[in-house]
């Protein structure tokens, strides 16, 4: 359950971080590629997501989502 909470927190932080970072770029027509506000959104998204996820203290129980421990 804790694993899911971390994932949801990280997802929302990445989404809202990138959206929030775009506010200074309101009115931008897009595609110019020369604005710190836009280019910095990736940094904001990653940093906020890392912060929101927190430090993992132990392995995710049950192996986590989409794990495939089947034999070959």
């Amino acid at each position: 359950m804790n694993g899911w909470k971390r994932r949801i927190r990280a997802f929302l932080a990445a989404l809202l971080g990138a959206l929030g970072g775009s506010l200074p770029a309101l009115g931008c027509t897009g595609g110019c590629g020369s604005c710190f506000s836009c280019a910095g959104m990736g940094v904001i998204a990653v940093i906020s997501a890392i912060g929101a996820a927190g430090r993992r203290k132990q392995a995710v129980q049950g192996g986590g989502e989409h794990r495939t421990p089947q034999t070959i």
Binding site: G3, R7, I8, F11, A14, L15, A45, V46, A49, I50
Partner: peptide
């Protein structure tokens, strides 16, 4: 420590 898939799809 970062749940990569969550960040990626966010």
């Amino acid at each position: 420590s970062v749940p990569a898939a969550s960040v990626r799809y966010g």
